[in-house]
């Protein structure tokens, strides 16, 4: 069987998918990055190799996410794309005609506006926790509710409590206050969903023209309470596509297919890289007052990539470019 590999390395999760030639997602793996992107990526590749039949041929590899360059080097990528483009490609393939993508992950959130299948506007939030999944994680932990139960419980709410606060800290103290006042748990949970939706729409969603079809993806889309809160706030139906939590990887696989459509051999290093010894190190350059923290990746002791230098002194010496831009 032939197919494409899509890899999304983010700060919270590392996702891999295997897509066959017809665009069917055959395998999807979701792992926590836990600050060890190289190790977790290798683990993901190992698991994927185990699940796939032996006669597999990888015709192309795409990487995305904040660790896309790193992943591209480790796995040998044919295309390395930012997460906006990857998510947009995935959503518009799975939900043709999509005009709005709401994406909330564990550590960041974004909105992507498409018209006629092409991205026309987008925004990202990587700073404010009140607009991301970690907000719900924290509150669920406070309330001692497994995050998986969160959505189901929130749906039982009849009158969601209004939780004030634009920022996670305020929202938390207000929630504790509401709890002490005796509101029911489902109402509080639904209130938290509404607060997150409000924050999201006021932050990344600010000034964006949200038109249907609307797709909601990212890890937080698992939460049915969030989906309902979005539907109520927008007055529109909100779709949660299959593979909603690995859409970046799906997009990367689709982009790899697009890239390799013209023929050529993939740069994939093979599943054997799971056993190769990679190391990420770094040093502070004292070449000038910028004191850049240079990241250095080694394979079996040999330096294969460096980045983080503002002047290109270290990355250029390897004939390797950190970025496309």
């Amino acid at each position: 069987m032939k197919g494409y590999l899509g890899i999304d390395v983010g700060s919270v999760s590392t996702n891999l998918v295997f897509m066959d030639e017809n665009g069917e997602i055959r395998e999807a793996i979701y792992l926590r990055t836990r600050g060890q992107p190289i190790f977790v990526l290798q683990e993901g590749l190992r698991q994927l190799a185990e699940r796939l039949p032996g006669n597999i041929v990888i015709s192309g590899v795409g990487t995305t996410g904040s660790g896309r360059y790193l992943a591209g080097i480790i796995a040998g990528a044919d295309v390395v794309k930012n997460e906006i483009t990857s998510h947009a490609v995935a959503a518009s393939t799975l939900v043709p005609g999509v005009q709005t993508i709401l994406e909330i992950g564990g550590q960041d959130s974004k909105i992507i506006i498409l018209r006629n299948g092409v991205v026309t506007d987008f925004a990202m939030n990587t700073v404010c926790a009140a607009g991301t999944g970690s907000f719900l994680d924290q509150q669920a932990a406070r309330l001692n509710i497994p995050i998986e139960e969160f959505g189901k419980l929130a749906l039982k709410s009849t009158v969601p409590v209004r939780i004030a606060g634009r920022c996670a800290v305020f929202a938390e103290s207000d929630m504790i206050h509401k709890q002490q006042m005796g509101y029911s748990l489902p109402d509080i949970l639904a209130g938290l969903c509404e607060a997150l939706v409000r924050n999201y729409l006021n932050n990344v969603g600010k000034g964006k023209e949200i038109l249907p079809p609307v797709v909601f993806q990212g890890g937080v889309a698992a939460n049915a309470g969030m989906r309902r809160a979005f539907e109520q706030a927008l007055g529109l139906e909100v779709h949660v596509p299959p593979h909603y939590n690995v859409m970046g990887a799906v997009g990367a696989a689709l982009l790899a297919r697009e890239k390799m459509a013209g023929g050529g051999t993939s740069r994939f290093r093979g599943f054997g890289v799971a056993k190769t010894r990679f190391k990420a190190g770094g040093f502070e350059c004292e070449g000038c007052p910028n004191l850049c923290e240079v990241v250095e990746i080694t394979r079996e002791g040999e330096v294969i990539a460096r980045w983080g230098d503002r002047c290109g002194r270290w990355s250029n010496s390897l004939g390797y470019k950190e970025n496309a831009v």
């Binding site: 904040s66 794309k81 930012n82 997460e83 906006i84 483009t85 947009a88 490609v89 518009s92 393939t93 043709p96 005609g97 006629n116 299948g117 092409v118 991205v119 026309t120 987008f122 990202m124 990587t126 970025n323 496309a324 831009v325």
Partner: peptide
């Protein structure tokens, strides 16, 4: 501001321009 965030936005912006140019309106990506 993290350089990575700026680079991601810039790349997405350039893709947005490129894909717009090469795709006839109405076709999906």
């Amino acid at each position: 501001s993290a350089e990575a965030g700026v680079v991601t936005r810039l790349e997405a912006f350039l893709d947005m321009m490129e894909r717009r140019q090469f795709l006839p309106a109405g076709e999906s990506v």
